[in-house]
Design a protein around this nucleic acid. Structure first.
Lengths: 193, 193
DNA sequence: AGTAACACTTAACCTGGTTTAAGATTTTAG
DNA sequence: CTAAAATCTTAAACCAGGTTAAGTGTTACT
């Protein structure tokens, strides 16, 4: 298992000594995945934080009418996982699946708890990580009700330059909070301009 | 200054020893406020995390058309503050003002940074705090596009039972992401039922 | 008490986005 | 290579919620 990516990601926020890095490596579990494969399914309690070591992922939930809503995409080098389910032990409502072939590293819940107990540096790392995640989430919340669907689509294209080629349009529409039909309309409009 | 509330709030997540508690108390600044008074105004960089020691607050931002959007309310015993502005040193887009008379405790940015350096227990406390905040923010994000305005209003009433009496309807409407006129329509509809 | 400023309601009309349904194109599996 | 399945587009009818504007409470200041 190649853990150079996760170590360098963490080292950007906090320095890890050999013991800390070694212990982290020893509890990670490699999980390769295929395009379209489900890595976590809704209904089961989340058991891992996941670090994308290669490839692209997406996470969505299915509402009472069976409609899938994409919450976010995750690129190589990003974390993902349902922290609500992890900390409450409730079943997750989210499904995570591969958009490409790739590999995630599992950090099991119990291992993460031990990480926090043994090495306070991981409290600091995840304090910074959750803080940044919260900032992004708040920003997206604000953008979602200030901007129109068309502005959100433009923002999506700017922020995830290569992403469009990996992600079917219906998932982009879902991420934007609109129907695939309406996304078609927007795209047609912007070609004419 | 009475810091028993903030200490007991923190002690629910992590135990503080005398040094840690004493140091925290020594850096907090009391800031009483009046109903309607602005505590932080948009345009200036945020300089404090704030803990509501008494009363109710609300935080909103003003969009390009001058419309105010309520992000959240904060009751006694809750933290609030713009962590994006705090960590980026950019001007905040949010304004925080009193819904009642009350008091906040300011935790200045530099003091918080020192807290993290000196006492790792605060990394743990804020790691847990940001994690829980992120969970709530994600939940609200999901609810906002799964539920209709009427369902969101019902949820608001359930979740903040006493709140309606302190908060003008136009702010509730804004929190729900709708116009005051449409909230009126909803309220009329639900009386008729 | 009087009045100006603000908060809330009602109603007519408007718009961004959804729904439904059908056809066209692309992807996948055998 | 081909057929089935999935995806994308178009278009018309429809709806949730917004906009505008006018009227009715409420507050708060002098």
């Amino acid at each position: 298992m190649n853990s150079s990516l996760i170590l360098s990601a963490i080292n950007q926020d906090v320095p890890l000594d050999e013991n800390e890095a070694g212990y982290l490596e020893s509890v990670l579990i490699s999980r390769p995945f295929k395009r379209g494969e489900m890595i976590v399914s809704s209904g089961e309690p989340a058991r891992y934080m996941m670090f994308v070591n290669a490839g692209y992922l997406m996470t969505y939930f299915t509402d009472k009418d069976g409609v899938e809503h994409v919450m976010h995409f995750a690129a190589t080098g990003w974390w993902c996982g349902d922290i609500y389910s992890l900390s409450s032990h409730q079943a997750t409502i989210y499904t995570t699946k591969g958009l490409t072939d790739g590999e995630v590293l599992f950090l099991p819940r119990s291992a993460q708890e031990q990480l926090f107990e043994k090495y306070p540096v991981f409290d600091k790392y995840f304090r910074i990580f959750f803080q940044n995640s919260l900032i992004r989430q708040q920003l997206r919340f604000v953008e979602n009700y200030v901007n129109t669907a068309e502005e959100r689509y433009d923002a999506f294209k700017l922020r995830y330059p290569g992403m469009e080629q990996y992600v079917p349009q219906k998932y982009i529409a879902s991420y934007l909070g609109i129907t695939p039909e309406f996304l078609s309309k927007i795209r047609k409009r912007s070609v004419l301009k």
